[in-house]
């Protein structure tokens, strides 16, 4: 059912501007700042942040979408930076844990994670915090059962889960605002 039309295809591909496979100029808006970088199209958002922009807050735990350590916000949603190609984020707003504090003032969730000891090694923590902030915005922190389920995309091998829930509860309940 697909009529082959290489000529048309070539034309169309040209029309939509094929870039790569070598390094190409890309502009990303990260934490409110326009950042230019030269990357191959195969570079993930996670590697663009970590290896090209020196933003190492988003962590690489698996590079396979199975741990959540790379959770960042793209536009208004928490996503996994390891399964996102950086170029797909052109024209979108990327927020990482480095962009959470404002003027040096920690976000309430960051303060709550410290106060509740919601981490040990700290490696999954940026992802947990980005996820937890989104969780509250999504309205899925109603009770502990809901927090548990909607935070299950972020693995913590130190198993700080009970304290992560406590931190989320405390922000939800406004104790630390």
């Amino acid at each position: 059912m697909s009529a082959q039309g290489p000529a048309l295809g070539e034309r169309q591909r040209a029309a939509i501007e094929e870039r790569g496979p070598g390094p190409v100029g890309v502009t990303l808006s990260v934490n409110g700042e326009e950042r230019s970088l030269e990357i191959e199209p195969r570079v993930s958002l996670l590697d663009a942040l970590r290896e090209h922009l020196e933003l190492t807050g988003a962590k690489k735990g698996c590079d396979q979408g199975t741990c959540g350590a790379c959770t960042v916000r793209v536009d208004d949603r928490r996503v996994l930076a390891c399964l996102t190609l950086a170029m797909t984020c052109e024209g979108r707003e990327v927020t990482t844990v480095e962009g959470l504090a404002e003027h040096g003032e920690l976000h309430a969730m960051q303060r709550a994670f410290i106060a509740e000891d919601a981490f040990q090694c700290g490696y999954c923590t940026p992802g947990q915090i980005m996820s937890a902030v989104a969780l509250l915005e999504e309205g899925h922190a109603g009770d502990d059962a809901e927090i548990k389920e909607w935070m299950s995309g972020n693995l913590c091998r130190c198993a700080a889960y009970p304290h992560i829930r406590a931190a989320i509860r405390s922000v939800r309940d406004g104790q630390r605002r």
């Binding site: 094929e18 870039r19 790569g20 496979p21 070598g22 191959e40 199209p41 195969r42 170029m87 797909t88």
Partner: peptide, 9 residues
């Protein structure tokens, strides 16, 4: 991952 090109439609 092999080298790839990218285009947005």
């Amino acid at each position: 991952m092999r080298p790839i090109t990218y285009a947005r439609a």
